[in-house]
Write a protein that binds this DNA or RNA. Structure first.
Lengths: 171, 171
DNA sequence: TAGTACTTTCAGAAATAATTGAAAATACGG
DNA sequence: CCGTATTTTCAATTATTTCTGAAAGTACTA
């Protein structure tokens, strides 16, 4: 591979890791995802360890997390005992998976927590302002939940331009 | 304040902090934001230090960050030398500010980084697949940028139901 | 089913992020 | 301006997260 291309790929992997960090995702996990996304063939744990300079344990755990998120698949080659890992290739599908997981892991628990707070706050007049604020927040969080639910259930790449059109109409 | 209400408020503050953490935001900053959101009057740094059990330095730095994000305003009372802090109260405005800042801080840099990678990758046939993938990602990140831009520029609470309607139409 | 190639696990180590607290800076009222 | 109340800064500390590496676990194959 040309030196320029190699360097560009490395830069991309690092940037993707950086971004992951800003959104609360393990930086190494994001780098692994980036590496697999731009790889034209499945990689083994050893390939990834070499490329990103991480330990076997780290590679194993983060690859498992990527599989749990539905972003990476395990595959195997005939006459080869090793496991290979391949990223989901379709960008829109990646987007759906991330939406689905974040909804489940981070939005739904918040809805539950606000509900509990509402219950605990009771019906006193004293709590009225607090209840009002919680209900407003709940409305917003439910909107986000709804949006992520929509996105997460789509499977076809064709939906992307549709969303774009709708949003443009939003003015 | 009733013990139940107090406990409900504390629970809410902790939950909001938890959620912040999951999205890459300092937990204490998120807790301060929650506390100010549900407070019916502005609070001083001392109030916040007492309520959340944090040091003066920590309070000062995180309050400044909240002001930078446009989520909290400094105010002052006549015949009182102390500074008071008040959260923006309108939920939709809060949402806009967050969208605007995250776009600026986290989406725009990624667009820049991908552009740079594209430039560095060069036009070789060898780099074709990589360029294709980067362009797909760029398209997606730009969509997100566009959405956050739209949301971030709205100022009226009336927009919320409008978005909801559009999204419901999305099927 | 024994040997080997590979993977997972997890306690401890290392790296990173958050927090403290006290000194320095600031700004207010007299 | 002076003295003081208040806020900010930042080096040092503490807490948290991430990572390592070797032992334990799995599963292929001969």
């Amino acid at each position: 591979m040309g030196a320029e291309l190699k360097s560009a790929k490395e830069k991309f992997v690092e940037s993707w890791g950086q971004m992951g960090g800003a959104w609360g995702i393990n930086r190494t996990m994001a780098r692994m995802h980036a590496l697999l996304m731009i790889s034209d063939k499945p990689l083994t744990a050893d390939d990834i360890m070499a490329e990103l300079a991480v330990s076997r344990g780290n590679a194993s755990m983060n690859l498992r997390a990527l599989v749990d998120w539905g972003l990476v698949r395990r595959t195997s080659l005939p006459r080869d005992r090793k496991e290979y890992f391949a990223s989901e290739k379709d960008i829109w599908t990646i987007c759906c998976r991330i939406a689905r997981e974040r909804k489940k892991r981070e939005i739904e628990p918040v809805i539950g927590a606000i509900d509990e707070c509402l219950k605990e706050a009771g019906g006193d007049k004293e709590a009225a302002a607090f209840r009002k604020k919680l209900n407003e927040l709940l409305e917003l969080v439910r909107l986000l939940d709804f949006v992520l639910g929509k996105v997460g259930n789509q499977e076809k790449a064709a939906v992307l331009p549709k969303v774009l059109t709708l949003l443009k109409a939003m003015a």
